[in-house]
Design a protein around this nucleic acid. Structure first.
Length: 962
RNA sequence: GCGGGGGUAGCCAAGUCAGGUCAAAGGCGCCAGACUCAAGAUCUGGUCCCGUAGGGGUUCGGGGGUUCAAAUCCCUCCCCCCGCACCA
């Protein structure tokens, strides 16, 4: 049993005392890596450990490769969840209090302190045993802790202020209205997360078309304003209560349900009274075309949807067509309203859109194809989507339509809408795409238009173009994420970047708003370069020109110093840091943040920094699950870092997290496997201890097995190095750890003699450095015990020494393995358990020369049996049948051999007989035989009762066991 | 629906881009043997099926195709995961 925690603590202390990871600009090449700072609303758990161990491993690796590495860390306090959490404490939410006290170890009497979101945040950021700072220390991260900060530090707010001034100046921030899902009972916007029902429901933008009837305005809601030219009538539902409401000074006729929505959506709604008369049968004037059309009854009209008033375009709307047909077929339906059936009969659909693959009226085509005749037929929904989608994407406006003729529907829709609104004949109304939408509190939600919201204009084409350019130059890990980034850049629209509540930086132009949390953490990587120096500066002095100078090199340092009051030397130091570290080499974060944070990070950099300071790479992570189940703090389904470290120590946790999955893959924490990892690491450590005890010696003559071990080491070293360059931690560990262990065991089984000690010491010296980025504490301990100077953490990464690459030795080992496998195959087939005797017969004589010919031919790529045989007949004194048999068998053997081996065999002279003879003891142990003999196939003294010797081929000895 | 990623032996997972060295690395689990008084640890071997001689058969989500040859290429279907905005 090794006390890992003691080793952990010892080396963590030593690193910290040596200030080993404090990074200062110097003459060496720099490597700057950051990972998204944690949002500190709960304890650090193993999921976070995964996220933060990856950059640490890379940072450590790069450091050993000679880079000056900066790996900083901070804490995200911005936003609403922490405020929400503090509120839950304040009202002593029993479940939340339970988690805090029972799970997170908060003392009952300390609860009042947690009513302050700052205290709450700080507790999990850096105060408690469960905090991120503590966890990261316990895991031995090579972070430059001097640069730590939180996003509500005053200096950080100044930095955000600077950023938003720049964005504002660049015209990338604007004010607007924005529809949100709104809970009337909570009085708050709600996100999908807050919903009981209606997750994923969209908000549709309806255009209200103002049909006029005397004083009255009938605002018919439509998703397709461009079809106004095809309106034949208006629909009202005869079973619905309509009201007359004063809206923006007009008298609107809408369903009763619509009134509250209008109020929520920025309309000035005055008096509302019941509509006493029935309007059905009267004529209204269509906006834009000024046609007079009748109001007709239709039951499909839903009072809960938008305004409850619907225009009828039978040519392009299946519902309208079917409803119209019904009225035409059954004139008696019109009787109660005194509508003249003759007039309705004469209504003809008016086609306004041309659509390939359909006739005059797509809606009619689809209704007829589906055989729909009732306006309550559920098939109408699908028919509607089909027609809408087809017309929107492929349709064009017909030639007779003024102004919009020939225009694509998708464009005409926006134009018509804009023109209607500009002319005062239209308005906008929002409605959910599906209902109901129910808040967690149980109330039904509605759409509310938030006024004065501030947006980042991600739809700005010039901005997008720069983002594309930046992305095009970036190194993305894994490369498959590129498509997703590209898609995100195209898809991103206006992003509301301010909020009313939560912690954070006030919007510089309007202190009633706070910069929203995703929007304040886009370029803070640059802040790390100076955050430690800023701690010495009065934040009040951090004017925009300070950041302009420090981060962008703009302005004159002396005048900046004069006007800001920041000391000249301090400014210069900061400028040096920023100039040295930027641009950022790699940004790391969860892949679920590609659609927002990671892409925002690109956008904001290109908006603020010149191209040579744009970020260079992004690594996206997969997620972590626990025993196959999603982690959830509220269900107690997490493992705090604290617990994991107490149980396993830092290195086991790190080793496990880095070895079970590549960073971008999902990772499943399984206790059973972590337990096994403990034993693996112990084996490594105890092996190292044994090697350290061995006597030191000069480099001896190397045996075959020594050469094999050294060659294998070079291979693993090369693979691990290549893998790390690609952030493939798992692959790197497969080689650097698991395969190394395996090979070492094999070597220990094969190697005899003096040279072993030297080889083992040589191997350990490289091995311990190869593992140092992954398991730094135990490696540091071993390094120290080996008597090495300094820290392994800053020792040079081992180089591949090609003089030790030995294909021949590797071939021989595989050869031996396959011979043993063959024997085992025989034993299994014959159900022999432990053979008394095993004999091997090695091919020799003319066969070896003939075999070379075969190798030659296989290398050339073509085996010509005829040519081989005629060569044999000339050169060898062997019966032709025997020759043919040999060549056939040998060609088959060689062809199924790995390519590399063919080369090795043709270029070297490997003594098969000698190898087998030397390895007799090893083979005997491996197959559990009492005795092993090796003969040449034509040795007259050979023991060969079954006459098997004649089956021997070069490198496929004949075998006899009994 | 849209965008992205996946489905490989009991489980996890490499291999797929550049078809043949693939019955398919490595880990976990399981089985057997060695060591041990014993357990654990460690070491060795086995772990798709069949086989009294190193061999054969059937596999890589389903189906079809290309090819001398397919886990790998093409088509098609089914299933799973992630994201889809005012939220970290």
């Amino acid at each position: 049993m090794v006390d890992w925690r003691e080793i952990d603590a010892k080396w963590q202390r030593a690193w910290s005392e040596a200030k080993l990871f404090c990074a200062e600009p110097n003459g060496r090449p720099k490597f700057f890596i950051t990972v998204a700072y944690p949002y500190v609303s709960g304890p650090m758990h193993i999921g976070h450990a995964r996220t933060y161990t990856v950059p640490d491993v890379i940072a450590r690796y790069k450091r050993m490769r000679g880079f000056n590495v900066l790996f900083p860390m901070a804490y995200h306090f911005t936003g609403t969840p922490l405020v929400g959490a503090a509120k839950r404490v304040k009202r002593r939410d029993p479940e939340f209090v339970r988690i805090l006290t029972k799970v997170y170890g908060v003392r009952e009497e300390d609860l009042p302190k947690f009513e302050d979101p700052r205290y709450f945040a700080n507790y999990f950021a850096r105060e408690s045993e469960l905090s991120y700072r503590k966890g990261m220390h316990l895991l031995g991260y090579s972070i430059d802790w001097r640069r730590e900060f939180t996003t509500i530090d005053e200096a950080y707010s100044k930095f955000v202020t600077w950023q938003y001034h720049k964005l504002m100046d660049a015209g990338l921030v604007s004010k607007g209205k924005h529809p949100v899902k709104w809970c009337p009972s909570c009085g708050n916007p709600v996100t999908d997360h807050d919903l009981l029902e209606g997750e994923g429901v969209d908000i549709n933008e309806f255009t209200l078309l103002k049909y006029r009837l005397g004083d009255y305005v009938l605002p018919a809601a439509t998703l397709r304003p461009e079809t106004v030219f095809g309106v034949t009538n208006l629909w009202l539902n005869p079973n619905v209560d309509y009201v007359v409401a004063e809206v923006d000074g007009e008298k609107w006729v809408v369903s009763k349900e619509a009134v509250e929505k209008l109020r929520n959506q920025g309309f000035k709604v005055g008096r509302v009274e019941k509509l006493r008369e029935s309007l059905i049968g009267k004529d209204v004037e269509v906006p834009m075309t000024y046609k007079k059309v009748p109001i007709l009854p239709a039951e499909f009209v839903d009072p809960k949807n938008a305004s409850g008033v619907v225009g009828s375009v039978p040519s392009h709307a299946p519902y309208d067509y079917v409803a119209l047909l019904e009225l035409q077929r059954r004139p008696e339906l019109l009787e109660p309203y005194g509508v003249d059936p003759e007039r309705v009969r004469k209504i003809k659909p008016v086609s306004v859109i041309q659509l390939q693959g359909f006739g005059e009226s797509p809606a009619i085509d689809v209704v007829e194809r589906e055989g729909i005749s009732d306006q309550r037929d559920p098939k109408l929904e699908d028919a509607t989507s089909e027609v809408y989608l087809a017309e929107f994407s492929r349709g064009t406006m017909r030639d007779w339509i003024p102004k919009y003729a020939g225009m694509k529907v998708s464009i005409a829709k926006e134009r018509v809408r804009g023109d209607l609104i500009a002319a005062g004949e239209g308005a906008t109304m929002y409605e959910f795409s599906k209902k109901p939408v129910i808040c967690r509190c149980g109330a039904e939600c509605s759409v509310r238009l938030v006024e004065d919201q501030w947006f980042l204009n991600y739809s700005d084409e010039a901005w997008k173009e720069k983002a594309r350019e930046c992305l095009g130059r970036m190194h993305l890990v894994p490369p498959e994420t590129r498509a997703q980034f590209e898609h995100t850049i195209e898809w991103l629209r206006e992003w509301p970047c301010t909020r009313r509540i939560g912690m954070g930086t006030p919007a510089p132009w309007d202190p009633n708003w706070i910069i929203e949390s995703l929007s304040d953490s886009t370029i803070y990587m640059a802040y790390y370069t100076i955050s430690h120096i800023l701690k010495e500066v009065d934040p009040a002095k951090l004017s925009d020109e300070v950041f302009d100078y420090v981060l962008l090199g703009e302005g004159d340092v002396e005048s900046v110093s004069r006007s800001s009051g920041v000391e000249l030397e301090t400014l210069k130091r900061m400028r040096e840091e920023a100039g040295y570290w930027y641009p950022l080499d790699y940004r790391m974060s969860a892949s679920e943040l590609i659609p927002n944070h990671l892409t925002f990070h690109i956008f904001h950099h290109v908006a603020i920094f010149p191209p040579d300071l744009w970020p260079r790479g992004i690594v996206s992570f997969g997620m972590v699950v626990l025993e196959g189940r999603k982690m959830s703090s509220s269900k107690g389904n997490i493992i705090p870092i604290n617990d994991a470290i107490r149980e396993y120590g830092a290195d086991v946790v790190r080793l496990y997290l880095m070895s079970v999955a590549e960073p971008w893959q999902d990772l499943d924490w399984r206790t059973m496997e972590v337990d096994a990892m403990v034993r693996h690491l112990e084996r490594f450590y105890s092996h190292a201890r044994e090697v350290i005890e061995l006597p030191k010696m000069e480099r001896p003559e190397l045996t075959l097995w020594d050469r094999w071990m050294l060659s294998r080491l070079q291979g693993h070293l090369r693979e691990a190095t290549e893998a790390l360059e690609k952030f493939e931690t798992r692959k790197a560990l497969q080689h650097a750890f698991f395969l190394m262990l395996q090979d070492l065991r094999r070597y220990l089984g094969l190697a005899r003699g003096e040279s072993k000690a030297w080889v083992l010491k040589y191997v350990l010296d490289r091995w311990v450095r190869m593992l140092a980025p992954f398991v730094p504490h135990v490696c540091e301990e071993i390094w120290h015990q080996m008597g090495m100077e300094g820290f392994v953490s800053t020792a040079p990464w081992p180089e591949v020494e090609s003089e030790y690459v030995d294909k021949e030795a590797e071939f021989v080992e595989e050869y031996l393995r396959s011979v043993i496998d063959d024997v085992r195959g025989i034993l299994r087939a014959t159900k022999m358990k432990a053979p008394r005797r095993a004999c091997f017969y090695v091919a020799g004589g003319w066969r070896r020369d003939a075999y070379r010919k075969v190798l030659e031919q296989v290398r050339k790529g073509k085996v010509d049996l005829g040519a081989l045989i005629s060569w044999g007949r000339e050169e060898l004194d062997v019966p032709p049948e025997e020759l043919a048999g040999f060549f056939k068998a040998a060609a088959k053997e060689v062809k199924r051999m790995p390519e590399g081996w063919v080369e090795v065999l043709s270029e070297s002279d490997i003594g098969e007989l000698e190898i087998l003879t030397d390895a007799r003891d090893f083979i005997r142990d491996q197959i559990g035989a009492e005795r092993v003999d090796v003969f040449t196939m034509d040795d007259p003294r050979r023991y060969d009762p079954r006459g098997r010797a004649k089956l021997a081929l070069p490198f496929r000895p004949a075998i006899y066991v009994e």
